[in-house]
Nucleic acid binder design. Structure first.
Length: 455
DNA sequence: CCATGCGGGGGCT
DNA sequence: AGCCCCCGCATGG
């Protein structure tokens, strides 16, 4: 594994090792001969699947940059967690740097309630929890399953593929928001295309992305804007970068208020979610929406690390763009089409609880094939190639894609680390950082740290 | 204190 | 039946 870490980076990219294989968290049997694992992804977004080593501490803890709470799905083998959204200033005030306040909601109900009673550190107005609605109007859900030596992670379910499980909020249309008035945001629907169509997801994301970009053309992307809540730097990663990469896209769909929820979304549920504004988008505009990112991706660390802090903000401009997409695309495409074949594994694992696993013998076939079909996404070139390979091989055979361009690109941004980094425990302290596009450096150090502390 | 998990239970579709 | 969510309880840092 260790070695793979480098490769892991790739995980961000769309085609993670997990995505290459065809499986679904609900499959009776999951791939067992996994030789490679994905690097832990803090900020997952979209329909992605990763296979982590059971030794990965972050995976063991079922961590996520997003504030995810345990959801009882009455299935002890699969741990289901749903996104809590993001906490923002009810007045949508702008921070000194122009960014919007975005806090990671406390996971504990009581703690969250207390958190919401606090006032905006910047303007003293009330804080507001914007729920995530990236999954067809419902919070984005993550599924964790321990099986053998691997920990399988999957956001959403394939059925949902049609809908993006993006945390983003729907509304975020960049345009609209650019400036948001204070309180109200118009939440409009996004324009993004509905997936509904047959079209598969072809990139809704892109769309979003695009849109997003629109706003901020170059720089924005960076994502930075988002002030996500970041963790503190224990590792250093705190930085908030937007995630373009990381989970990149994460857009979570959060709506601002419940009241408006669907509206925005409009009937199409699907649509909405897409909007994804990827984090990166404009800072200001969407505050809320933006928060999407906010929510958190700490993800930034990768970036951070790799990049160095964004010192150059400029840089990112470039990045973002590509990055974002990339990953999405892949996500979808890969997965869902194919049903997972049942794979026979030698052992089957049964997970009792999240953490516990018991093995049982099972029949198994040795080879698996995963539907090649699955991956047809044309769009993604990247993935495709990779996928193809993958498909041809059995899991075990797969090699990692170093080859794939995708990855590389991915790597470029993130390069480092990850695998090992476990997020430090501190994760709790996200402070949000916001940055507008550029200034973020300051912010980082900025006074506001909303960690859990009070302001 | 709070993050996490577990699991009962209610409500909806 | 599934899914979502609320709630309390327990554990552990």
């Amino acid at each position: 594994m260790s070695k793979s870490s480098d490769q892991f980076d790739s995980s961000d990219c769309v085609c993670s090792f997990g995505m290459k294989l065809t499986w679904d968290i609900n499959d009776p049997k999951l791939p067992q001969d996994t030789k490679q694992y994905d690097a832990f992804q803090e900020w997952t977004d979209g329909y992605v699947r990763y296979i982590y080593s059971s030794e990965d501490k972050n995976a063991q803890r079922h961590l996520s940059g997003w504030a995810m709470r345990n959801t009882n799905n009455h299935n002890c083998q699969i741990l289901k967690k749903s996104c809590l959204g993001v906490v923002v200033c009810s007045r949508n005030c702008s921070l000194p740097d122009g960014s919007k306040l975005q806090l990671r909601p406390a996971i504990c109900d009581k703690a969250r309630q207390k958190q919401q009673k606090k006032l905006c550190p910047n303007c003293n107005s009330a804080l507001e929890l914007i729920p995530c609605r990236g999954h067809s109007g419902y919070p984005v859900t993550n599924f964790w399953r321990v099986d053998g030596k691997a920990i399988f992670f999957q956001p959403g379910r394939y059925h949902d593929m049609a809908f993006p499980n993006i945390h983003q909020l729907t509304m975020e249309g960049p345009e609209r928001f650019s400036i948001i008035a204070e309180s109200n945001f118009p939440i409009q629907t996004q324009h993004y295309p509905p997936f509904q169509n047959t079209e598969p997801y072809k990139f809704p994301y892109d769309t979003h992305t695009t849109a997003a970009m629109a706003d901020a053309p170059s720089s924005l992307q960076k994502p930075a804007n988002h002030r996500l809540y970041m963790t503190r730097p224990p590792c250093g990663y705190d930085f908030a970068v937007p995630g373009y990469l990381g989970s990149g896209p994460y857009p979570t769909a959060l709506y601002k208020d419940p009241s408006s929820p669907q509206t925005e979304t409009e009937p199409n549920k699907s649509g909405s979610s897409l909007s994804g504004v990827p984090h990166g988008t404009s800072p200001l505009g969407s505050h809320e929406r933006s928060y999407t990112e906010t929510t958190g991706k700490h993800h930034g660390w990768k970036q951070i690390l790799s990049k160095g802090a964004y010192g150059e903000r400029g840089d990112y401009s470039q990045l973002p763009t590509n990055t974002n997409h990339h990953y999405y695309n892949s996500d979808y495409p890969c997965r869902y089409t194919g049903p997972a074949p049942a794979t026979p594994a030698a052992l089957q694992t049964i997970i009792t609880t999240t953490t516990k696993v018991s093995y049982q013998p099972c029949p198994k076939p040795s080879v698996v094939k995963y539907g090649e079909n699955i991956y047809d996404v044309k769009g993604l070139s990247n993935c495709n190639s990779i996928l193809e390979d993958a498909s041809s091989n059995s899991y075990s055979d797969l090699k990692i894609p170093e080859d794939s361009g995708v990855i590389k690109s991915a790597l470029s941004y993130q390069d480092t680390l990850p695998a090992k980094i476990e997020r430090s425990e501190n994760f709790e302290g996200y402070r949000y950082s916001s940055y507008s596009s550029n200034s973020y450096p300051e912010r980082m150090s900025h006074p506001f740290r909303y960690d859990s502390g009070e302001y």
